[in-house]
Amino acid sequence: MTEEIQKKLQKEFELFNNLKKEYLKAVSQRQQLDSQMNENKAVKEELSLLKKDAEVYKLIGPVLVKQDLEEARQNVAKRLEYINKEMKRSDGHISALENKQEAVHENLNKLKSNLDNLKITA
């Protein structure tokens, strides 16, 4: 009986650790999106401040390629939209992982107390 619970405990523990790793990864991804969004927002603002005839270039590899200002604005807006969507997805993913983690944590505690009870009665 004890052995069985111990095995279960180990399994749950592994699950917990994996979830934790996944969670940390998701959080750092979310942070990256956040900083990307801030950078894009700053660029959007800057582009909106430019005069109509201002020249805009995009760095592609080692060269600067001239871009149409309107096109650049649209591109940044599109990218912001995409990042926003990704952020929502990421938020959902994170909260799902949080819930899962909590459930596994509860399971772990239950198993632990089971084990303790067995030890006391043994």
Partner: peptide, 21 residues
């Protein structure tokens, strides 16, 4: 002058605009 405004975009600005930036 041409200024790096982030995310790979570079914008041309006059001197006053650059100072302001």
């Amino acid at each position: 002058v041409i200024i790096d405004v982030g995310t790979g975009y570079y914008a041309q600005k006059d001197i006053e605009g650059a100072k302001d930036y």
